[in-house]
Structure formats: C-alpha cells, structure tokens
Simulated assay, not measured.
Amino acid sequence: MSSSATATHAHPLPLELATSKRLALRPPPYEPEVEKAIRNSAFKGLSPLNLRLVLAQEPKLSVAFQSMAHVVLFQGALPEREREIAIIRTGALTRSEYEWGMHVSIYAEKCGLSEAQVMELTVGQPGEALWTEKERVIVCMVDELHHHSTVSDATWAAMCTHWPEDQRVELILSSAFYHMAAFFLNSTAVPLEKGARRFPPGMTQASVPADGAAA
C-alpha cells in the first residue's frame, strides 16, 4: 500500500454540526488530544468527520478506535482491493449505509471495482463472471463470519491456500473491525457524510422490527 496514503491532513471543522437522531456530535471546545484526533485524517477529500465527532464523546475509546482503523486501512500487507471487498461486503450485510457509502465512495474506483461488482457485493452473491476464485473466498469468509460468527473448515482451508498467515489475520480482523464499526454507526445514528454514496433503491439502513424479531 502506498505510504503516501498515511499522510495526515488537518480538516477544518464545520461551522454547524450535523444533527444525529441519537448520540450527538460533540461540539467544541476540545482537549488538545481530542482536537488532534478530530482534525487529523489520512483522507484529503471525503473524510469520516461526523464519525470522529460522535466518537469524541468518549475520547479514550475514540483514540483506540481510530488507531485500529488506521492500521487496518494503511499499515497492512493485504492488497487494498481485497481488503475493500471484505469491508464493502461487511457494510452491506450489516446494512450500515454510512460504512458502505464511505468505502464505496473512497475506494471502489481506486481499487478497480466496477459498478456491477459493487452491486453484487451489496445485494447479490458474487459469482464466477465478475470475480476470481480468491475474491469469492473473501466474500464467503465475510458471509460466514456475519451469519455464523466463524468460518467453516472449507473456507479456512481455502484461505490458507490463497494467503499467508499474517494476511489471513488481516482479512478476519478487517471484517471483524468493520462489524464493530457498523454496530456503533448504526446504533448511534452517525449522520451520513455529504458526498458519500447512498444505498441503492430498495436497500435500507439497519433497524429492529417493531415486533422485536430478528431482521
């Protein structure tokens, strides 16, 4: 992964904070370490500012969260495309419009993911026409983690065939971390960022059915 991607940029704070239906974005003033965490971003353009402002409600966990995200996104050995296949699929399965939209907006074109591939990751089951065997293993891993909280022996064996041990760890933790991120984003109603992709028609943000049953 390009080392230039790890450069930090001081993003200006908005004059008016977005409104959340649940956990409010934290307004200034901030402690110096919190302001640094809020303003510094590895992204020059579209950036997860609303998420950082909600996380700022709990500074210690905010710093830890952002540190983990930085390692996953900028310091791993996995090819960026493979990591993003895992994250975009995770965002779709968890029905986290914020997570899905940010990663599609920032990474899809950069990683060579076509619109047809993004849609298969989002609402379909990736098949042989658009994906390599290796990429389909990533989707299978993410699907099994989401639905069963583990992977099958067959999927693990396939992962061992395609990736060395450190990259298998990265793949699992990338999906796991973005499950955690989706749970937080969904539960606290972090407002969507201006300019980020929205879910395709017919797909909605995660919610609990009125009768309390599993969705």
Results as ranks from 00 to 15, higher is better:
123 V>Y: 06
123 V>F: 08
123 V>C: 13
125 Q>K: 14
125 Q>L: 13
126 P>N: 07
126 P>S: 12
127 G>K: 10
129 A>Q: 12
132 T>V: 07
132 T>Q: 10
134 K>Q: 11
134 K>G: 02
135 E>K: 03
135 E>G: 00
136 R>Y: 01
138 I>M: 02
139 V>N: 02
140 C>V: 13
140 C>A: 15
140 C>P: 01
140 C>H: 13
141 M>P: 02
142 V>T: 10
142 V>M: 03
143 D>F: 04
144 E>R: 07
144 E>G: 08
145 L>E: 01
145 L>V: 00
145 L>T: 01
145 L>N: 02
147 H>R: 10
148 H>D: 07
149 S>L: 15
149 S>Q: 15
149 S>E: 12
149 S>I: 12
150 T>C: 01
151 V>I: 15
151 V>D: 06
151 V>H: 09
152 S>W: 09
156 W>M: 10
157 A>P: 00
158 A>E: 06
158 A>G: 06
158 A>I: 03
158 A>H: 04
158 A>Q: 13
160 C>H: 03
161 T>A: 14
161 T>M: 06
161 T>Y: 07
161 T>G: 04
162 H>S: 03
162 H>W: 05
163 W>Q: 01
164 P>D: 14
166 D>W: 02
167 Q>Y: 01
167 Q>A: 05
168 R>W: 09
168 R>H: 08
169 V>G: 05
169 V>I: 14
170 E>S: 04
170 E>N: 03
171 L>D: 05
172 I>P: 00
173 L>N: 11
175 S>N: 11
175 S>D: 06
175 S>H: 13
176 A>R: 05
177 F>Q: 15
177 F>I: 07
178 Y>D: 02
179 H>E: 13
179 H>D: 12
180 M>P: 00
180 M>L: 14
181 A>Q: 12
182 A>G: 12
183 F>N: 15
183 F>I: 13
184 F>D: 04
185 L>A: 13
186 N>W: 05
188 T>A: 14
189 A>E: 15
189 A>K: 11
189 A>M: 08
190 V>L: 09
191 P>M: 13
192 L>K: 14
192 L>G: 10
194 K>Y: 05
195 G>E: 03
196 A>W: 08
198 R>G: 00
198 R>P: 00
200 P>W: 11
200 P>A: 09
200 P>S: 07
201 P>S: 08
201 P>Y: 00
201 P>L: 07
202 G>K: 04
203 M>C: 01
204 T>H: 10
204 T>Y: 09
206 A>E: 09
207 S>H: 13
207 S>W: 07
209 P>Q: 00
210 A>M: 09
210 A>D: 11
211 D>C: 12
211 D>M: 11
212 G>M: 08
213 A>M: 13
